[in-house]
Each structure stands twice: as C-alpha cells, then as structure tokens.
C-alpha cells in the first residue's frame, strides 16, 4: 500500500494530514462528530480555554460581513479543569491530533492553566495570546515582542507539551513578535487569529457589539493572512501553521506554498460543516495529479 502523501510531523506529533479544525470553531468535537467523520481530520484545536472558564460576552456575538464574519464570543468556555477531566479524553478518542488552546487574562492564569494541562493527554498546547474579544489580557500579550516572548518562555518552562503560539495579526510588527516567540522557545507558531474590526448599526446609531470592536474572519481576510504567513514563515525556522479564510483545497495549497506546514480551517466550517473533508480530499487529488510523494514537498516553495 502506498504511503499517505498527506502525512506530516508537527512538534514531534504525527498528523495524518495538514488540515486542523481551528480553535473556537469546533467546540471540543462533540457537535461536528454528529455530522461528519471527524476522525479524518489532521487535528482539532479545541475551544479556547481560560483557567476558571467564562460566560463570554453579552449582546450580539456574531455578525456577518462581506465574505466573512465578525465575532465577539469572548472566550465562553468551561475552564481548564473541566477540559482536563471531561473533554481531553473524549478528544483523544476521536483520533486526530489533540490541541488544547489556552488563553488567559494575566500571567498567573496562563501558567496555572498550562500547569493543569500537564495532567491532560493532549499533543500540543496552543498558546493563545491573540484573542481580541476579552477585556483583560488576551491579545495584549501578543502585541509586542517583549510580552509575547516573556509569556512564551514562562509557559514553556511549565508545560510538558509542545507549545505552539497563536499570533495576532493586529500586532504592529508581527514578524518581530514571531521571532521573539521562536527565541523564547516556541515549538511552532499558528497564525492568524482574527483581525480587529467593527460594525455599526446605522438605524440605531450604535456599535453592533458591546465591546465595540470584534474579530474578523472568513475569506475576506485570506490575502492578508496569506501575506503574513509568508512573511513569518520566512523569518523563523520553527514550523508555521497557517489560517485565515481558507475555504478550499486550493486555498490550503496557497498557505502551504507560502510556508505553512499545516493549515487550520475555522469560519468555513460554520458555512459548510464538511469543508475540511473536501479540502483533505482535494489535497490528496493534488498530490496524485502532481505526482508528489508527500505534500510537504511544496511547503514554502514561494
């Protein structure tokens, strides 16, 4: 039997393909497991966790925009302890690589959360320093190289898991943040989280979201996300996982050619729950058509 041309290794973990469900778009897998064969995915990044959980934001939480959407969920989640005792083993049993996404409001939250996650059977800790929808912490850690490096180094010191730092496209100098995370010991980088955006209800003369600003995702951001992945992948030597508006195998190939070893798909899953399966099939077809032994051969060719 020919070997699987889509397989890859990320942070020492073997993935059957480079298509990962993006954090915040897939819960912990339960909902979509009812609808599709989630065992075919390369990995699942679970809903962003905070130490003590959160009820999330009040008011409007999702709002559609041209070829995309704004969200202001505010990291509604059951907390790290709940994840460790109730969700991690469930995710493991699904089959794909298990990624726990950890956010936080302050340094102590991140470190205690990372410490608790040492008791969970996960493959990768995705360090979320880029959530734009929480008032304290969140994206603030990911805006500057110094703060990003500091929290990365401290979480690395605590965690027994490989650490993949999820970066914010809202950082004034994203490449500098990426380099700083690499120097601080990050095992991989994932980018981009959502772009800070805004919506206004003209009739009511008010901002749509209670937090005023919200995170933009979907196909509308793809060209910018692609440029950022390209820049970062050229600036670091650790693996980069790319995301931002991917809807098709062709989109995924763009991110791989730009330098990402794997991709995450988020918003498109909302529109078409089976989008990731289509993408995986499309990548297989591409390998066959191009005669590639392994899809990784096209990573970073541009």
């Amino acid at each position: 039997m020919p070997s699987n041309p889509l397989k890859l290794t990320l942070c020492g973990i073997s993935l059957q393909n480079p298509v990962i469900a993006a954090s915040g778009t897939f819960g912990f897998g339960h909902e979509y497991a009812e609808i599709l064969d989630v065992s075919r995915l390369g990995g699942i990044s679970g809903k962003g966790l905070t130490l003590n959980g959160s009820a999330g934001n009040k008011g409007m939480r999702v709002y559609e925009t041209p070829s995309g959407m704004l969200n202001s969920i505010g990291l509604e989640n059951p907390g790290v302890r709940h994840f460790v005792t109730h969700e991690a083993d469930y995710m493991r049993a699904l089959g794909p690589a298990v990624i726990a996404n950890l956010g936080g409001h302050c340094e102590e939250d991140y470190l205690e959360g990372a410490h608790l996650l040492n008791d969970a059977d996960i493959d990768i800790l995705e360090l979320n320093i880029s959530c734009p929808n929480v008032k304290a912490g969140g994206m603030a850690f990911g805006m500057l190289p110094e703060t990003a490096a500091d929290i990365t180094q401290k979480v690395k010191a605590v965690s027994r898991h490989p650490v993949m730092v999820k970066l914010s496209p809202n950082a004034p100098d994203l490449v500098a943040v990426a380099r700083a995370c690499e120097s601080a010991g990050a095992d991989a980088l994932s980018l981009v989280n959502t772009f800070l955006g805004m919506a206004i209800d003209v009739k009511q003369k008010c901002a749509v979201f209670e937090n005023v600003y919200a995170g933009l995702s979907g196909p509308a951001i793809l060209p910018i996300a692609l440029r950022m992945v390209h820049q970062v992948a050229h600036a670091v030597t650790i693996p980069v996982v790319g995301m931002g508006g991917i809807t098709s195998a062709e989109d995924a190939l763009k991110f791989l050619m730009a330098g990402a070893v794997a991709v995450q798909v988020g918003t498109m899953t909302f529109a078409d729950p089976k989008a990731m399966l289509r993408i995986i099939d499309g990548l297989s077809d591409y390998c066959a058509q191009e005669g590639l032994d392994n899809l990784q051969q096209i990573v970073g060719i541009l």
């Binding site: 915040g24 778009t25 909902e31 009812e34 939480r61 899953t269």
Partner: peptide, 8 residues
C-alpha cells in the same frame, strides 16, 4: 453562525 452548537 453554525447552527450546530459550535460557534457559541
């Protein structure tokens, strides 16, 4: 956004 309980 999703209709299935994932996006919250």
């Amino acid at each position: 956004a999703c209709g299935v309980g994932a996006c919250l």
